[in-house]
Design a protein around this nucleic acid. Structure first.
Lengths: 275, 275
DNA sequence: CTTCTACCGCACAATATTTATCAATCGAGA
DNA sequence: TCTCGATTGATAAATATTGTGCGGTAGAAG
């Protein structure tokens, strides 16, 4: 196709081809803003053929990120339908890097062996992990994440929630009570979400959440940190722990030299999830 | 030569095909707000033909979410018919007597004074209450209801969730840990949901839930039972307590003589919520 | 009891979307 | 630079959804 004048929206013949992950993310953006996606709309918007969008939606649907409908797609049906959303803020964070989070969650879930006691911390990436492992029948979940508890309960394995004050926007349980309950446990594996990671350690925005994370780390045999690449070289108010405390880091892009070196020194096994 | 794009952009709000699931959700929204749906109203509202709405209502009716009537649909009758295997059971229960539950929740919320410590138990009626009082800033909530915690958290008052195993379908927290945490509390007021009430006392389907309810009752100054009329003269496997334990009963219809007499003897204040 | 109006649902037509298939194009690696 | 594999776009047949016409029926008013 030559350079058409009528196609003023995008010069698609000369523009670089948009890679599939970027396209997927943009679809998720539209989907999150409007509640549903129309194949023809998003095709025109991105500047690709409807056929390509259909293939994209098939992939995203297979990954459980949305549910296909005639003419488009809507929110994934799998989780609880409370009707009221969980606030545009949370949904937005959930949509950010949705593809990366999903990939990380998939890679992380592969780490879990049979009959393990699994601790689940707070965060959007952790929530993606919860959706991923919700079907497993042979595990035992402990979490301070109210949303994850809702996702996991009744899906197979027993779920135990820590008691304490519930804080937004993460719907995390914090406080001495939660910490005390953790101290009475031993967990095979615990998954931790972080706000930032640098050579000095892992960080979180909330000191209260950080305290619970530390307790998780204390009682776990294997500490797995989930962290997409946007968190690299970022720090926050509360330091959770040094890198030594981490056994495995699951992320979506290889860390750059300064951080990579520190991770190697701390003997952290780094898993880069394939998209 | 006419530009087809601008036409499309202008017509977007009305010309876009709305996926069936979204339409169904909007129908259920109207239904939950008003208690009934009118075919012509909702057809005009959504911008599709009445025939399409009829087909939608047929589907929703087949799923047990509502019952078709002449000109629209109303709440599904009470559930002797659990009927459809994979149907959304919780949502269905929530839709049942939606109007009654809302009225009960409203009347119950009026009981709460300033600065009270409030306990919230499990059940669909309790969830309606949670939605009702979510804005109040001067209270302190304690609950074993994971869904209610999600509803209340971040809406003003601090929320504390009990720790323990999370059980479906109520997403209730049960177990010795939850009971122990309750024993360390004193609550001004506690709201209890029940599965049935007869002159011998209040009942629940789950012995584990009943145990937590008993603990709630033990530590509360004022025990309020929420209970729509469909629970009258019904009993279940676990007896929570005798009627003596109740201070206030909030319901939507006056109890009949046998129960009414027992309530009077037990010194229970009965509040009948106005629809 | 009758009549009238609005609603129901079936059948069919029109339109939009999907799927299957194949050709064209792009990018990576030799 | 060339080839191979993968991704994308285009076409046609199949399918799904929606709208409309029409006979029949429920509910309301006289």
């Amino acid at each position: 196709m030559r350079e058409p004048d009528d196609d003023h929206a995008l010069m698609r013949s000369s523009a670089v081809r948009i890679p599939a992950p970027v396209r997927h993310q943009r679809i998720m953006d539209v989907f999150n803003a409007d509640g549903f996606v129309s194949v023809t709309d998003v095709a025109r918007d991105i500047g690709v053929s409807p056929m390509t969008i259909r293939r994209d939606l098939a992939i995203l649907g297979r990954d459980g990120l949305l549910t296909r409908t005639y003419g488009g797609a809507v929110a994934a049906q799998d989780s609880d339908r409370t009707g009221h959303g969980d606030g545009p803020l949370f949904d937005q964070r959930m949509a950010e890097n949705a593809v990366a989070k999903k990939a990380i969650a998939k890679a992380a879930s592969a780490l879990i062996q049979s009959r393990e006691s699994v601790g689940l911390d707070v965060g959007t990436t952790l929530l993606a992990l919860a959706a991923e492992i919700a079907g497993r029948p042979d595990l035992r979940f402990f979490t301070n994440n109210v949303r994850a508890a809702l996702e996991l309960a009744g899906a197979g394995s027993p779920v135990y929630v820590l008691g304490g004050e519930v804080r937004t926007p993460e719907f995390s349980v914090v406080g001495t009570s939660a910490v005390a309950q953790l101290k009475a446990l031993y967990l095979n594996r615990v998954f931790i979400g972080v706000s930032g990671i640098i050579d000095l350690g892992i960080f979180d925005f909330s000191p209260e959440d950080a305290e619970v994370k530390r307790s998780f780390i204390d009682v776990a045999d294997c500490v797995v940190v989930l962290c997409d690449a946007s968190k690299f070289q970022r720090r926050a108010v509360a330091r959770i722990a040094t890198l030594d405390a981490i056994d495995i880091l699951v992320t979506d892009q290889p860390p750059r030299p300064p951080l990579a070196a520190a991770l190697a020194t701390a003997n952290v096994r780094v898993i880069v999830a394939d998209r």
